[in-house]
Nucleic acid binder design. Structure first.
Lengths: 138, 138
DNA sequence: TGTAAGGCTTCCCATCATGGGAAGGTCAAG
DNA sequence: CTTGACCTTCCCATGATGGGAAGCCTTACA
């Protein structure tokens, strides 16, 4: 299987497959005489694993950890769960951060006429004037 | 005021102040004979504006737009509100995306023993096996 | 069998916002 | 006058991805 076929089979772009190889995540089974990368079902499975992990927001570093755990038959499920839990906490922290921004922005937007006049509480807040009555969350 | 003082006064690092200058966001009032950047209260105000906009999640490009609107006394509040609304929608989309990840991850974590055994629904999901009973959101 | 299209290779560059650090000039205090 | 703290510019790194060029290879078709 060429890199193009491995790409369609896994949903990972050829560009990314080469990059993952470069950072040591996944190597092709070998090369043809003409230096083409060759992949098998095994490699495609790994690529799908990576893709799924990425879609759940894991970084490539975390994905590498998970990949190693997956391939280590003597892992403990506790070690996997720990990676997941840390990631969940990270996501929740970032969600809370963004929700704070949304809350502030919605308040400011609500207070903004949104008409032809120049007066704008949003700009006033950014400029540090009339600090939106304690609604400045972020 | 030197860049260091402008930095403490605004909360923006000297490194970033120089970068903002490079991309055309904010220029120093001038330079001393020895080529040091010189800032005044006006510039610090702009830096604070930028910092506040960044803390609300606006990109530097959006921040530039807001900055121009702020300085344009003939702007309409509608134009400002539009920038804010677009950003709110963007934030909410990203929040929803991450919440989907969290939902899936929590389900998988809940199903994972987290003990000394190797069996792990989290890895199974990533590997594409036992697709977590329709909980695969992301 | 020749050729054209398309796939593969490597290499470099860009993104976005930020920080690190080196090499060298400047200023202020002791 | 020296020392330390500041400033200058320049280059590099991050994380994950895409774009594109130059050149080789393969396949399909005439």
């Amino acid at each position: 299987m060429n890199i193009g076929e491995a790409s369609s089979a896994s949903g990972v772009s050829a560009k990314m497959i080469r990059y993952y190889e470069q950072i040591g995540l996944i190597a092709p089974k070998g090369r043809t005489e003409s230096n083409y990368r060759v992949y098998g079902a095994e490699e495609v499975h790994v690529l799908r694993f990576i893709k799924r992990a990425r879609s759940l927001g894991f970084s490539l570093e975390e994905t590498e950890t998970l990949l190693k755990l997956w391939q280590d038959k003597s892992r403990t499920s506790a070690s996997v769960k720990e990676v997941a839990t840390t990631h969940i906490n990270d996501l929740e922290r970032r969600i809370a951060e963004m929700q704070g921004m949304v809350k502030t922005l919605k308040h400011l937007s609500h207070c903004c006429g949104g008409d032809h006049r120049p007066d704008c509480p949003i700009l006033d807040d950014l400029a540090g004037e009339s600090p939106a009555k304690g609604e400045s969350v972020a």
